[in-house]
């Protein structure tokens, strides 16, 4: 019960420092990839043109300056704005991290055509999609641990997790997964964990073209499949205990 309360509190309490600064958050908020997804219109762009110019310029300064205020100021200057315009981003360097995450997720959605539903191909599709997304971190990988530290700050954690959840959802959608049973939840949670660990692994990977990350990812996905069939097994078992019990008895000739 107390865990329930705690979860409830986490869910309903908005992180107070965050929402005074909506600038680094996609302007469309929840409607990006949340709620009923319509195919009849384009989604609103997540950043205003000004934010877009400054943050993308800042991002190009990240390889040299890291995810720092310096990169943000340099970005503003490069985009032709005064230094003071970094006031637009009260979240500071975190806005660059968020910009990278959001734009890369949307790029994935834009560049990849959703696969047709084919259960056999889903694991391979997922593998390819995660790799594709990881490769988008290449240019800044030597700075990515700084980003991870920012993402793990308690005040930023809700945003970080939310973005991770949206990425999982995007990858599963693009991979052609149409499962809408309770597996929907376990799939997304499992994928989020695998992606996050592969991303972290990649920051320490010095191999040619990140082949070790590739192997690491393949192993994690394989384990995930095993766990899934185990969990599926437990689910089936529980099912037999509940409704399936009746069917089982019926098949044995018991007239119930």
């Amino acid at each position: 019960m107390s865990i329930f309360r705690l979860l409830q509190a986490t869910c309903s309490k908005p992180p107070s420092r965050l929402y005074s600064s909506s600038n680094f958050v996609p302007s469309c908020g929840l409607s990006c990839g949340r709620f009923y997804h319509s195919y009849e219109h384009d989604r609103p762009p997540p950043f205003s043109p000004t934010e877009d110019r400054i943050l993308s310029a800042a991002l190009s300064h990240v390889p040299t300056h890291g995810f720092t205020t310096t990169a943000l100021t340099q970005g503003a200057r490069a985009a032709g704005y005064l230094d003071i315009s970094t006031n637009l981003f009260p979240a500071g360097p975190f806005s660059i991290v968020n910009y990278h995450l959001v734009t890369q997720r949307l790029a994935l959605a834009k560049d990849v055509t959703p696969a047709r539903h084919d259960p056999i191909k889903i694991p391979t599709n997922i593998n390819k999609l995660i790799l594709r997304r990881l490769h988008a971190n290449k240019a800044i990988i030597h700075r990515w641990q700084e980003a991870l530290a920012l993402l793990a700050t308690p005040t930023r954690l809700p945003t970080s997790l939310r973005e991770l959840a949206l990425l999982s959802d995007e990858i599963l959608f693009l991979a052609g997964s149409t499962d809408v049973t309770s597996v929907w939840y376990t799939n997304r949670a499992g994928l989020a964990v695998i992606y996050a660990s592969a991303e972290l692994f990649m920051t320490t990977d010095t191999s040619e073209n990140f082949v070790e990350t590739e192997e690491f990812l393949a192993r994690r996905l394989e384990e995930g499949e095993k766990i899934k069939s185990f969990v599926g097994g437990v689910g089936t078992w529980a099912g037999i205990q509940a409704g399936g019990f009746v069917d089982g008895m019926r098949s044995k000739g018991v007239r119930i």
Partner: peptide, 18 residues
């Protein structure tokens, strides 16, 4: 109007009643 009224934690673990 805050996008944080629902966090992913809630999406996965406990979609919020609130």
């Amino acid at each position: 109007s805050s996008p944080y009224s629902q966090t992913p934690l809630c999406d996965f673990l406990l979609p919020s009643f609130t």
